[in-house]
Design a protein around this nucleic acid. Structure first.
Lengths: 223, 223
DNA sequence: GGGCACCTACCGAACGTATGGTGGTCGGCG
DNA sequence: CGCCGACCACCATACGTTCGGTAGGTGCCC
């Protein structure tokens, strides 16, 4: 390139720029990278953009990373680990399968709403990674979608979900409706994350439950 | 650049390449561009890639387009127009709101399954367009999502949908679950487009309908 | 019916710029 | 002093875009 971008002015000896301890800078780098990938997409984003926002030169980034792709991998890994932990926890704690399904959906939605930008990067740029690294993140069996599928299947075994529901498709349907949220949720919009979580969970539960199970739920709440 | 890519071989006088009439080439260009955008993403795709597959030099593409962005715009416009037409038609034909909702979802899903690649490009690369052109395609009011929202709202007015359902969120939930399909549907997978459509439609209808409306549906089918 | 004008569909080559990445350097803090 | 954190200069490559040129075709006029 012609020359790396300078903050301003001629080539007087550059001001040294802030020095920060490694860990702090690393966290800041992940944050900035996430934001830039969000705004421009992985391919559209340049290391120059990221370096600019950190107030350093792009060459200096290689003190922290080995390649641009590594950076994306790191960003996406972190997002996925967090989200998966949230969902696993919600799905594992007590209650009948329908209760756990409802709680899991709400947790998932609220987490996505509160982490809009990372979530968007995850869902958008996962495919920008080579298949091997993608699989390393998702786990061999696409564990994420398995959580919802298994909850539906379990509800079905307990007679709480309609027998004509295909648990696999139902799980994917739920994953779709919840993973779509990042596209339309706005923090200053008409609905809070909690409200949205409640709505989506209610729709999903009604979507798969038997009439009896639903009636029993109403009775339990009324009691 | 070093030199435009050749089909093969040394620099013997280039074979002239097929000449085709304008309309035919234009259709082929749109098709190839869709495929390449699908495989590499808009930013990741190069005009060189597209030209190679058409058997022409990248400079020659400018006989047909004004810019790379124009090409994306054209591709996405076409996909959206088709999909919107399908959904509008399904939503407009007769029946009570729940029946129309079901039919519309099934039509939408089947159409997406049968047009996987264009659908994926539409959903992935819409944001690669500048806001103005995006709005030009979607229409000011995001008409697409409005179709589902309106059907739910209508059902609600007729007492067929539960009053605690937020039609806006419900519409977006449906759009999410159906627009997610392109991520997991495989033509050689275990479910046909029709089966998936039926499943998703059933879940959505059960998700919003009142117990009475559902009971009435069952009775009607039984009769 | 032959020549001339003009169009179509594409070639070939270049331009300017940006990109991911490398390697050597160097001030300051502990 | 040593090393951390960053600077700086520099590749090689790839990209979108532009532009002049040209072989083949079509229609028209004499």
């Amino acid at each position: 390139m012609a020359q790396d971008r300078r903050p301003a002015g001629r080539s007087e000896r550059r001001v040294p720029g802030e020095r920060k301890p490694r860990e702090e800078r690393w966290a800041q780098l992940l944050e900035v990278a996430t934001q830039v990938f969000y705004e421009k997409g992985y391919e559209g984003a340049s290391l120059q953009d990221i370096a600019d926002r950190l107030g350093m030169l792009k060459g200096s980034l290689y003190y922290y990373i080995q390649s641009k792709e590594d950076l994306l991998f790191e960003v996406i890994s972190e997002v996925h680990r967090e989200g998966y932990a949230v969902v696993r926890t919600a799905a594992a704690t007590g209650g009948d399968p329908l209760e756990r399904l409802e709680r899991t959906i709400r947790a998932h939605v609220e987490h996505a709403c509160r982490n809009l930008v990372p979530t968007a990067v995850f869902l958008h740029e996962l495919e920008s990674l080579p298949a091997a690294r993608r699989d390393a993140i998702l786990g061999a069996g696409h564990a994420y979608q398995g959580v919802f599928r298994d909850l539906v299947a379990e509800a079905q075994r307990d007679g709480l979900a309609r027998p004509d529901v295909d648990p696999r498709v139902a799980g994917l349907s739920i994953l779709g409706s919840t993973n779509w949220v990042y596209r339309w949720f706005r923090p200053d919009g008409p609905s809070t994350p909690e409200e949205i979580g409640v709505q989506l969970a209610a729709m999903a539960v009604h979507g798969v439950a038997t009439a009896d199970a639903l009636a029993a739920r109403v009775a339990a709440v009324g009691a």
